[in-house]
Design a protein around this nucleic acid. Structure first.
Length: 879
RNA sequence: GCGGACGUGGCGAAACCGGUAGACGCAAGGGACUUAAAAUCCCUCGGCCUUUCGGCUGUGCGGGUUCGACUCCCGCCGUCCGCACCA
C-alpha cells in the first residue's frame, strides 16, 4: 500500500484543536515538578506577524516542548507590547481609535500565532494597553516614587514646531520632522525619570553573574554603563579675557579620564548647551548662531558624533592648573556632550583622536606627552593619529619619566592639595555614561503617569485608592499636540492633598516601562490586587531562557534588570536579575527584487528560474525580467517580505518552523528562500513516508525487547540512540541547525535500512529496532514539527499524544564502540585512517600507524623525528 | 564618531578544548521509473593536475606561534547591527 501524502493543513488544524481541548499546554502554578520558564520577547501588535516572529517563537517552542518532554513544568506564555506610536499614527491616518486598531491587530496576530501550533499557555495572555495590566504599572510607579527611585528633571527633546509634538530620533531626518518637514528644535522639558543610575555599579557588577547570557550582550551593557575613573578639575577663568557684558563665572569644572596628559592641553571646550556657552553667546551673535546650528543636529549621540568636529572660540581664556602664566582658549564644541561629566573638557590632541581632529582644524598645535615604549622622546611627534597607548611621560615637567598611571595619581594628589577659591582644585570622580531613564512621553497611547499637579502642593501622587488612572476613550487626533492635554475634562481634577482644582499629568510612560515587568506578570496574570504574587513569582523567576533580537540587547534588557531591582526594593519580587538565560537570535533576510525602472517587487510576484548559468528572475504577471538585488533585512519599504500566513497556507506551519530552524545558526541571520522552504516541505513528506513504512515493517503489535540483536538491528539502534544523544545536546545548546542535521542523518539511515528489507516477515529483533528507532525519530523532530509528529505518532500505533509523551531514554552504551577509526598524518597532512581498539595504548597505536602502507610510502625511508599520539584523536608522524 | 559582531564550495553551513576542512541541506549536472509530467529513488558535485593509484592547493588579505591553525597572537580589508523618544 502506498502511503498517501501528508496533508499539513488538515492535520495542523486537527491537532491544534486537540491540544486546545485537552489543555495540553496550560501550566498550573501548583504543579510540584521542577519548573522551567521559557519566554520569547512579546510582539508589538503592528498588524500581522512577520517571519522574525516565526523564527523567534519557533525557537522558544522547541525548548518549551523539549523541556516539557523531559518532565519539567514549563511556563511558556504570550502577550502583547501594545502601547506605542504606530497606533497613534494609524489613528491620524485612518481615523481609527488606537484601542480599536490595537485590539483588532491583536486578534489577527493571535490567530496567526495559533496557526503556528506553538505550545503556549494562552490563558495567561496579557496586553500592556489593558487597564488590568497598566493599573499595576501605575502602582509600581507610585511605589518607586515612594522608594526614592523617581526624579523630576529637565532634559532635551526634539520639538517639531508645526506638529507641536516631541519627535523620536528616528523621526528626525536631516534635522527636519518626518511628517511636517519643519526644522526641528531642541527644547528643555521637565520630565519624569527612573533613577537607574542609582544602580549603575550594581548593574555593572552583576553582569559577571549572568553566565548564561551571550558574551557580546554583557559586553555591550558593560560599555553602555560606561564606568570611568577620572578627575574633576576646576580651571580658573582669566578675568581679563572675558568680554564686557559676559557673565562668566570665576571658574569652570571639567571632567577628564586623562589628567596625566594635562601638560599636553591645548584648549578647553564646553558643550553648546553649557552655561558658559550661553553666557558668551549673549554678546556674540555668531556664537549664538553656532549654538543654534549645533542644536539642529538633534539629540541623538550618533548624529552629534558623526558630524564634522566644529568649534567656536569664545575668546575667554582659562588658567592652566599647574602654571599661572599658561592660558588655554575656551571653545564651544559640537562634540562635547552636556549629559556626560560636567559638559566641559580640556583637549589634549596628542592622545585623543577627537581632540586631534579638532585641533588640526583650528591650528592649535600638538605636544605629545606620552612617548610609546619603542619611540625616541626627542623625535616623537603626533600629526594625524592620536596615540592612546602606554609609555613614559615627556614634556610634562614634574611628571616626566612616569607611566601615565603614575602621572594620573600624581596629578590627582597635587590637585587635591592645591586650593582654588578656597577648595581643592581637583577631585577623583567615578563617572558613568549611563543616564537616568526618562520615561515621560507626550503621547496618548501609553500608560498614564499617576500624578496630579497642584499649584499649592506641587506634584502629588494619585492615591492608590484612585487607581487606575484610566485613559479617556473620547479623544481626537485631528489637531497637533497631545490629545490628553487638550481633552476637555480629563486632566481637571481636585488635588488629593488640598482639594483645590489641579490638573493631571498628561504625559504617559515610555513603552519600555510596559515591557520591563511583563515577564513577572505572566506568573500570575489574573491577580487583580497586586502586580505580582510574591510566592508565585519567586518560584518561577528568573526566566530560565529569554529569546529575542539583538536590537534589544541594551535598552530593554538593562531597563528590565533595573526594574526587577526596583520591584525587589518595593517587595514585589525576591530577586535582582530577571533573566538567568538569554539568547539573541538573528534576523530573517531576503533577496530584493527591482524592475528595470527601479520599482521594488515583492517576492510573491516574482518567478525564479535557475539553470547552470545561474538564477534569473521574472515578473509572474507578464514575464518581464527582474533584477535580483542584495539580500537585506525584510522590510516593507523594499517589499522583500514574505507573509507567514501565505507560507502556512501553502506548506503548513511545521514546514515554516522547520525551515526557520534548519539552515542557519540561530544567532545569525537566516536567508528566507522559496527553494529552502520547498526542501523543508519535502523533508516533512519524507518523514511521513518513513513513519508509514516503519509501521508496515513493525506491523501491529510491538515485540518485546529481545535478549540479543543481529548486527543489522544493532546498527539501527546505534543510529537512533546516537542521534538522540546529539539532539539532546544540541537543543540544550540551542544549536537547532546542527540538531536538524542529526535528524536528517537518522532519517537517511532509517530510509536506507527500510530499503534494505526485502522479505516482509521480519525477525523480532529487527522489528523491535525499527519500532524503537521510529519512535525516537518522531520524538526528535516533535519539538520542531509538532503536528507532523502527532500524525506519525498515531501511525506508529500510539494512543496518547507525542506532545505529552516523556522523552526517550538514551542508551549510551550503544553509542560507544569497541574500535575507533582515527586519522594518521605525516608532517601534519592526513594520509591514512587507522582502525584500532578504543583503549589501545600509545605504543600500540604508534606501531600500528607506522605499519600502514600509505604512511610508510609517505615517510619514504626518511628518519622519523617524532610521533605525536593524541589518544582517540589523531596520530602525527614528523619526519 | 563610539561600541558590538561577522567573513569557510555556486549557496546556507558543520568542524566539541589547537587534531581528518566542507557533516547536513539547497542549487546544479547525469541516470532510473513514467506515454508524458509531477512525485520518488540512485550517482556526481571546492579548485588544479592525473587514464587509474594518487598528488598539489584551499577557510577575506598579510605576517607570526605550533609536530599540527577555520580555531591562538599581531596588522589590514570588507559587510552588518546598536547608540538612550521605533519597538
Amino acid at each position: 500500500m502506498r502511503p498517501e501524502r501528508y496533508n499539513a493543513r488538515e492535520a495542523e488544524q486537527k491537532w491544534q484543536k486537540i491540544w486546545a481541548e485537552r489543555g495540553t499546554f496550560t501550566t498550573r502554578n501548583d504543579d510540584p515538578r521542577p519548573h522551567y520558564y521559557v519566554l520569547e520577547m512579546f510582539p508589538y501588535p503592528s498588524g500581522r506577524i512577520h517571519m522574525g516572529h516565526v523564527r523567534n517563537y519557533a525557537m522558544g517552542d522547541v525548548v518549551a516542548r523539549y523541556k516539557r518532554a523531559r518532565g519539567f513544568n514549563v511556563l511558556h506564555p504570550m502577550g502583547w507590547d501594545a502601547f506605542g506610536l504606530p497606533a497613534e499614527n494609524a489613528a491620524m491616518q485612518s481615523k481609527l481609535h488606537p484601542a480599536k486598531w490595537t485590539y483588532a491587530n491583536i486578534d489577527t496576530m493571535r490567530a496567526q500565532l495559533q496557526s503556528m501550533g506553538l505550545s503556549l499557555d494562552w490563558s495567561r495572555e496579557v496586553a500592556t494597553c489593558d487597564v488590568s495590566y497598566y493599573k499595576h504599572q501605575q502602582k509600581l510607579f507610585l511605589d518607586f516614587l515612594a522608594a526614592g527611585l523617581v526624579a523630576r528633571k529637565k532634559s532635551k527633546v526634539n520639538w517639531d514646531p508645526v506638529d507641536q509634538t516631541v519627535l523620536a530620533n528616528e523621526q528626525v531626518i536631516d534635522g527636519r520632522g518626518w511628517r511636517s518637514g519643519a526644522v526641528v528644535e531642541q527644547r528643555d522639558l521637565t520630565q519624569w525619570f527612573f533613577k537607574i543610575t542609582d544602580y549603575a555599579e550594581d548593574l555593572l557588577n552583576a553582569l559577571d553573574t549572568l553566565d548564561r547570557w551571550p558574551e557580546k550582550v554583557r559586553l555591550m551593557q558593560h560599555n553602555w554603563i560606561g564606568k570611568s575613573e577620572g578627575l574633576l578639575v576646576r580651571f580658573a577663568v582669566d578675568r581679563a579675557s572675558v568680554p564686557k557684558g559676559v557673565e562668566a563665572a570665576d571658574e569652570y569644572e571639567i571632567y577628564t579620564t586623562r589628567p596625566d596628559t594635562l601638560f599636553g592641553a591645548k584648549f578647553m571646550a564646553v558643550a553648546p548647551d553649557h552655561p558658559l556657552a550661553a553666557a558668551a553667546a549673549a554678546r556674540d551673535q555668531k556664537l549664538a548662531a553656532f549654538i543654534e546650528e549645533c542644536k539642529r543636529i538633534g539629540t541623538s549621540i550618533a548624529a552629534i558624533e558623526t558630524a564634522e568636529k566644529k568649534g567656536y572660540d569664545t575668546g575667554i581664556k582659562v588658567v592652566h592648573p599647574f602654571d599661572p602664566n599658561w592660558r588655554l582658549p575656551v571653545y564651544v564644541a559640537n562634540f562635547v556632550l552636556m549629559e556626560y561629566g560636567t559638559g566641559a573638557i580640556f583637549g589634549c590632541p596628542a592622545h585623543d583622536q577627537r581632540d586631534l581632529d579638532f585641533v588640526n582644524a583650528y591650528v592649535l598645535g600638538v605636544t605629545p606627552v606620552v612617548c610609546p615604549p619603542d619611540a625616541d622622546p626627542a623625535t616623537f611627534t603626533v600629526t594625524d593619529k592620536a596615540y592612546d597607548g602606554d609609555g613614559r611621560m615627556i614634556n610634562s615637567r614634574f611628571l616626566d619619566g612616569m607611566t601615565p598611571k603614575e602621572a594620573f595619581d600624581e596629578v590627582a594628589r597635587r590637585l587635591a592639595a592645591q586650593m582654588l577659591h578656597g577648595r581643592p582644585q581637583g577631585k577623583r570622580q567615578v563617572n558613568y555614561k549611563l543616564r537616568d531613564w526618562g520615561i515621560s512621553r507626550q503621547r496618548y497611547w501609553g500608560c498614564p503617569i499617576p500624578i496630579i499637579h497642584c499649584e499649592a502642593c506641587g506634584a502629588v501622587p494619585v492615591p492608590e485608592k484612585d487607581l487606575p488612572v484610566e485613559l479617556p476613550a473620547d479623544v481626537s487626533f485631528d489637531a497637533p499636540g497631545n490629545p490628553l492635554d487638550r481633552h476637555p475634562t480629563w486632566k481637571h481634577v481636585a488635588c488629593p492633598s488640598c482639594g483645590r482644582p489641579a490638573r493631571r499629568e498628561t504625559d504617559t510612560m515610555d513603552t519600555f516601562v510596559d515591557s520591563s515587568w511583563y515577564f513577572a506578570r505572566f506568573t500570575d496574570p489574573k491577580n487583580e490586587r497586586a502586580p505580582t504574587t510574591p510566592a508565585i513569582v519567586n518560584r518561577w523567576m528568573p526566566v530560565d531562557l529569554y529569546i529575542g533580537g539583538v536590537e534589544h540587547a541594551i535598552l530593554h534588557l538593562l531597563y528590565s534588570r533595573f526594574f526587577v531591582r526596583a520591584m525587589r526594593r518595593c517587595g514585589h519580587i525576591g530577586m535582582d536579575e530577571p533573566f538567568a538565560g538569554m539568547f539573541t537570535q538573528g534576523m530573517v533576510v531576503h533577496e530584493t527584487y527591482r524592475t528595470r525602472n527601479g520599482e521594488w517587487i515583492a517576492p510573491a510576484d516574482v518567478k525564479i528560474e535557475s539553470g547552470p548559468e545561474g538564477r534569473k528572475a521574472f515578473l509572474i504577471d507578464g514575464g518581464a525580467p527582474i533584477e535580483i538585488g542584495p539580500i537585506e533585512k525584510m522590510s516593507k519599504s523594499k517589499r522583500n517580505t514574505v507573509d507567514p500566513d501565505d507560507i502556512i497556507q501553502t506548506y503548513g506551519a511545521d514546514t515554516a518552523r522547520w525551515f526557520m530552524l534548519s539552515d542557519s545558526p540561530p544567532d545569525r541571520d537566516v536567508i528566507w528562500s522559496e527553494a529552502g522552504v520547498q526542501g523543508a516541505g519535502r523533508q516533512a513528506q519524507r518523514l511521513w513516508r518513513l513513519a508509514c513504512e516503519i509501521e508496515r515493517i513493525v506491523g501491529g503489535a510491538r515485540p518485546a525487547m529481545p535478549a540479543a540483536f543481529s548486527e543489522k538491528a544493532l546498527e539501527i539502534r546505534r543510529a537512533a540512540h546516537g542521534a538522540l544523544a546529539r539532539v539532546e545536546d544540541d537543543i540544550e545548546k540551542l544549536r537547532f541547525n546542527v540538531c536538524i542535521a542529526a535528524i536528517y542523518e537518522l532519517g537517511n539511515a532509517l530510509a536506507a535500512a527500510v530499503g534494505a528489507i526485502d522479505a516482509t516477515p521480519v525477525a523480532d529483533d529487527l522489528r523491535f529496532a525499527f519500532a524503537e528507532a521510529g519512535d525516537i525519530l518522531v520524538q526528535l523532530f516533535a519539538p520542531m514539527m509538532p503536528h507532523l509528529a502527532e500524525e506519525c505518532w498515531e501511525v506508529l500505533g500510539h494512543d496518547g499524544l507525542v506532545s505529552e509523551a516523556p522523552w526517550p531514554v538514551c542508551d549510551r552504551e550503544l553509542i560507544v564502540t569497541d574500535t575507533i577509526t582515527i586519522p594518521v598524518q605525516v608532517n601534519g597532512r592526513k594520509c591514512a585512517d587507522l582502525t584500532i581498539e578504543r583503549d589501545a595504548d600509545e605504543e600500540a597505536v604508534k606501531a600500528a600507524a607506522l605499519a600502514l602502507d600509505a604512511v610508510r610510502r609517505r615517510i619514504d625511508n626518511k628518519p622519523v623525528k617524532k610521533v605525536i599520539v593524541v589518544p582517540q584523536r589523531i596520530v602525527n608522524v614528523v619526519v
